[in-house]
Amino acid sequence: MSTHFVFLATCLLGAVLPTSLHAASPQQPIAYNHNLHVSELEIPCTECHIGAESADHATLPPKEICATCHEDGPIGESDEEAKLIEFIEGPDPIEWIRLTRVSEHVHFSHRRHVKAGQLLCERCHGQMAEHEVPITRPAISFRREIGMQRCIACHKESGNARATVDCVLCHR
């Protein structure tokens, strides 16, 4: 009797858990194809993430940036592009879901790393250019893969004299 109960409970959990996990994963308003834009069309990351070279935050692109290429109507036949055109023509902004976050106590300046340090985006964000559909969790987690140890190791290896390991350089 108890064996049957455990078996049934496991089956039920197996059926419910993936659904709930799927529901928790963020759904971007448009299934943006990084592979098409970055790998095939060779658009640099900083063309859309405009803050990466000039500010602390790289920023997620507002629809005005998309409109610079897509304003005159659809370029292809994708349903996702049709959604984009609707956004561009409509009053609503595109509410991209931000996945990558650094901890509250860390001050990370994109400008410092991308512009001054000439660091490639994939060093921290992984191979975003390979993704044809939006990722549902950060390509590289700042909690797991990128801890303080990795920051310090990179600063020491960089050979850049400005990349010191002074605590207040990164800790707010």
Binding site: S109, R112, A116, G117, V168, L169, R172
Partner: peptide, 17 residues
């Protein structure tokens, strides 16, 4: 007081760029 060291960080970034 940190001598507003966050301002120094910004100044360093400006200079480095």
């Amino acid at each position: 007081c940190t001598f507003c060291s966050h301002r120094l960080q910004t100044a360093r970034d400006d200079a480095a760029c």
